[in-house]
Design a protein around this nucleic acid. Structure first.
Lengths: 324, 324
DNA sequence: CTGAAAGCGCTTACAG
DNA sequence: CTGAAAGCGCTTACAG
């Protein structure tokens, strides 16, 4: 029909005809079928965003940024939650492949996510990694500054006079967990400090994970006087452990952590590295859309500046000394 | 092709042929195009979930429940965030209509959402309302117990001895805001208490909204000794206001609120009505899927039990008296 | 058991 | 400026 022409505003259509068509469309409440359209133009106008934990406020914030940018460019965002499980990641990715989405933003759940990248590559669907990197092939990735921030946070504890500093980081197959551990070790190394045996621990990025690791870390008589945790849930889990063991924070134990997600708290407590979640989402969408537009420049790693926020969990009180 | 037959497992295919087809599919990493399929079977396998505020942890929790139930039934969930703006709701809904999703779960942004329901009805897309109701036409809706919970929370403050009790609820065109106000008034009425002028206030469901309304409420010399807030952000905003004015919580001001979202806090503080967010998402998806399966029973309102959690913001200390 | 035809709702050249 | 034809990737009867 010539309907298509008026819908897409292409070529010229006689005003009278256009009016007739528009009237009919209105009367029928006609909305063109995008799936059918996609079959011929090979574009759906949909981007998929795959995140590992929707109950971690960091990711919804990221999603909000992504969605705003996508909407501005005329795309709709499909959100998928993997619960840090590769099988769910895989299932979701297969579904969006079947839908022929235009591109995907992926925060990989772990080392098996390399398979996800292969899957997407075989379907020729562009992907940009977000928050977490997958080593191996070069990829477009938009992430926060993990290593440097971890070093700054650890350094801040050292400035406070701490010498026995512990670490709770995430699973080894998640890049942020590795990078944050590196930053931690960088800082100790700068000051010729050692990591006593058992002081660097790994746990799932959950409150329960932080609680378990925290109990292990704190129940030794030679326990650390300060701990760096690699994400917000780990930090809260550590506090839970400290409370159970009657260890006061920050008096008896200083804590610094990652991600500022205390939107729903009466008084934010954590000294932390606040990654710009919304900007990460926005930036990643922009990268993806550039690829969709035919950008063939080399794969690009975009590292967003991460601010260190000094609050109370490190032992600072009110005005920060900010030796950073 | 006979490929379709092996993909869909229909009719019998000679094992040898089946094997050949499967082999070819594997070699080509073939994934059938669902959009094309949907054109003929009139099913996409996608459900849309439209929420008003992704940065409010209540909704991601709800989304997680919805997604789990949808996945179990073989559906993929598309998530859309409206920021409480009808225009974004409308844009998103039009996009999912164009995609021909099978059904939608909608937490309406306000009174204009009636137009959304009309839109969906004209496209013959089943919808179930979630968390918030839209009065007028009967609808499938899955929501929490607002009125009764608000009454219980208010009653609890009265048990504490409070007589001058204020309210900060949400916008009048959101059903939860109205219902919570009703519950609040129910409780006062039960005890022959009055609502002094200016004691019942409305504000957007944001921390800033709670802050503003809180300042208004607390700056009078005759200020309330206790306040009920209708959502978590309002509660935190009120605390912000109290802190600025040097009013101690709960010593000088008791607060009770809605939604238990303090996953990321060192020590949950709010006495609150904890709506079962995940169960709401799950239940709503089940309702929607029943409709998709041809369920033509009368429209149904499902009200999920909401638990009142006694904590510290009301003035209780440790073990709750629980006169509820 | 398996192939050829028709059609789902669109768009893209191609004629008129 | 506008209609008729062909085709996007699938599935559904219909023949063989």
């Amino acid at each position: 029909m010539t309907v298509s022409r008026v819908v897409n505003g292409s070529v010229s259509v006689r005003p009278a005809t256009r009016r007739r068509v528009e009237r009919a469309m209105r009367d029928l409440a006609y909305i063109p079928n995008r799936a059918a359209r996609s079959l011929v133009v090979n574009k759906l106008g949909v981007l998929a965003l795959v995140i590992p934990d929707i109950s971690n406020p960091f990711f919804p914030l990221l999603a909000r940024g992504a969605e705003a940018a996508a909407r501005a460019a005329g795309y709709t965002v499909i959100l998928g939650n993997t619960d840090e499980e590769f099988d769910k990641e895989d299932a979701y990715l297969r579904a969006v492949c079947a839908l022929r989405v235009d591109g995907v933003l992926l925060a990989p759940s772990g080392h098996r996510s390399r398979e996800s990248l292969d899957l997407l590559a075989r379907q020729h669907i562009p992907v940009v990694l977000i928050d977490r990197d997958v080593e191996g092939v070069p990829r477009d990735v938009v992430r926060g500054e993990s290593r440097r921030s971890a070093r700054l946070l650890t350094d801040h504890l050292i400035q406070h006079g701490h010498r026995r500093i512990g670490l709770i980081t995430g699973p080894a197959d998640i890049s942020t967990a590795r990078e944050r551990e590196r930053g931690f070790r960088d800082a100790l190394h700068d000051h010729d400090l050692e990591v006593p045996p058992g002081f660097a621990r790994r746990a799932p990025y959950t409150r329960e994970g932080g609680h378990r690791a925290g109990c292990d870390l704190l129940s030794s008589p030679d326990r650390p006087t300060a701990v760096v945790t690699a994400n917000n849930f780990l930090g809260f889990g550590l506090i839970d452990a400290a409370r159970e063991l009657g260890i006061g924070v920050p008096e008896d134990l200083a804590i610094v952590t990652f991600d500022d997600v205390e939107i729903v708290t009466d008084a934010p407590f954590f000294t932390c590295a606040a990654q710009p979640a919304e900007a990460m989402g926005r930036t990643a969408v922009e990268r993806l859309i550039a690829r969709l537009g035919g950008d063939e420049s080399p794969m690009r790693e975009t590292v967003l500046h991460t601010q260190v926020l000094i609050r109370r969990s490190c032992g600072c009180d009110g005005a920060p000394p900010l030796p950073l």
